[in-house]
Design a protein around this nucleic acid. Structure first.
Lengths: 222, 222
DNA sequence: CCTAAAATTTAGGCATACCTAAATTTTGAT
DNA sequence: ATCAAAATTTAGGTATGCCTAAATTTTAGG
């Protein structure tokens, strides 16, 4: 086990985790898309990860990969770094939630465990990052997320936004102007079965949201 | 000009700057020593830096290198990052001055200009890092250092420690216990012409320091 | 001034992590 | 069930940045 994984490997593991977690299969093509590299490059790397000591992924030709226990630990370490950093950048340097992703993306690979501990302690060991996403614990377990995608809710349900799973700056800025941020109370007013649009009320604003948006907003029902 | 220099190149430029600044010549061997890589590797890289567009170093076979204007800018950018980071780690995360170097060494290569601006502003645009070393300005000029190496002073001279040019954890911890930190008032009590030891008084402590130490402590005379 | 030691460069290699083109395997539509 | 399209892998190549061994140049002591 290379005690210190390369930046590339960390990125692969993180992205495999994210794909797997969201229910998709971590296929060569999907990974290539997320990582913005060619499919053959991905094949090469996952072959390497599958045969490393210890193996970080389980891999059978043409069937995508899953993380081994070691691979998952490594992925959660990177994700913990990323989310703690996002929280830290927002809380101490006044970054807004749409600006933090890129910076955290680079820092996550180079901070020490000491740095991780210090920022976690300084923030009082936060459970979620600025987008409401759960932060893996110090012992690298991912807490259970009990919220529901907004897209799964129907009129008259109410709840509180727990989390917005998006990195796109434009979308995040847009959602913020609509008040669609973690902690906001939301009520589903209308549903269109044709385009899956939802009409929702936040504060005294009413907005129509498409599936692309509602599938990224997670609600704790009340 | 690769608008974004690799980590390796940034390290070369920074180390060339430091060697040149301290009066030594940036020879292949000296660089290899500082960077902890082999001499042939250094030769290869400086040839590359000398022929890049624009050239980052000036180089003539067997005669070491000097930085071009572009190379110096790039070096000062890295050094500004490093020193701002050291200050920030100490001020906001409670790092001690002997712990910050390694962390800053990795972070300096990945922070954005936005991050740089934010931490500089958050600290009120500090002039010096925790070791008292001058921080290059935002427009990448190095301020003039007017202090004198302690090793150049003789008995009865007094002054204030401006800066300690050392990265070694052990030494820094030792100096801290002796009160030999930036801002401390110091008086030279005795000089030994045989071993160049200086006996100095800080507070009510009196200490004998060898040339290895006195050459690293810089004093503003009073 | 001459030669041995030190410094430096050249030559040839290796690992990482990407790429494109071509071959192969899988999948899905009819 | 078949076959074309899609997905994936194989083959072969590139750039970076390091290495060791050997050749060359510089330097300093006698």
């Amino acid at each position: 086990m290379p005690n210190t994984l390369t930046v590339s490997i960390q990125d692969y593991l993180k992205n495999i985790y994210e794909l797997t977690e969201s229910g998709e299969s971590a296929s060569t093509t999907a990974l290539a898309g997320k990582l913005k590299i060619s499919a053959p490059s991905v094949t090469g790397m996952i072959q390497k990860l599958a045969t490393s000591k210890p193996p970080l992924v389980e891999y059978q030709k043409h069937q995508g990969v899953t993380l081994t226990k070691d691979g998952r630990k490594a992925a959660l370490e990177v994700i913990r770094h990323h989310r703690l950093l996002e929280a830290w950048l927002v809380q101490t340097l006044g970054y807004s939630w749409d600006e933090v992703h890129e910076e955290a993306e680079r820092l996550e690979h180079v901070i020490s465990e000491d740095f991780e501990r210090r920022i976690a302690a300084a923030m009082g060991h936060p459970l979620r990052d600025p987008h409401g996403e759960l932060i893996p614990t110090a012992d690298l377990k991912m807490p259970l997320e009990d919220s529901t995608p907004l897209s799964a809710l129907r009129p008259t349900r109410k709840g509180v936004i727990q989390c917005v799973k998006a990195a796109d700056t434009e979308l995040l800025r847009h959602l913020e102007t609509l008040g669609l941020v973690p902690g906001a109370e939301i009520e589903i007013m209308e549903y269109s079965q044709f385009d899956h649009n939802l009409t929702v009320k936040v504060g005294h604003k009413t907005t129509v949201l498409g599936l692309n948006v509602t599938s990224k907003i997670y609600i704790e029902e009340s």
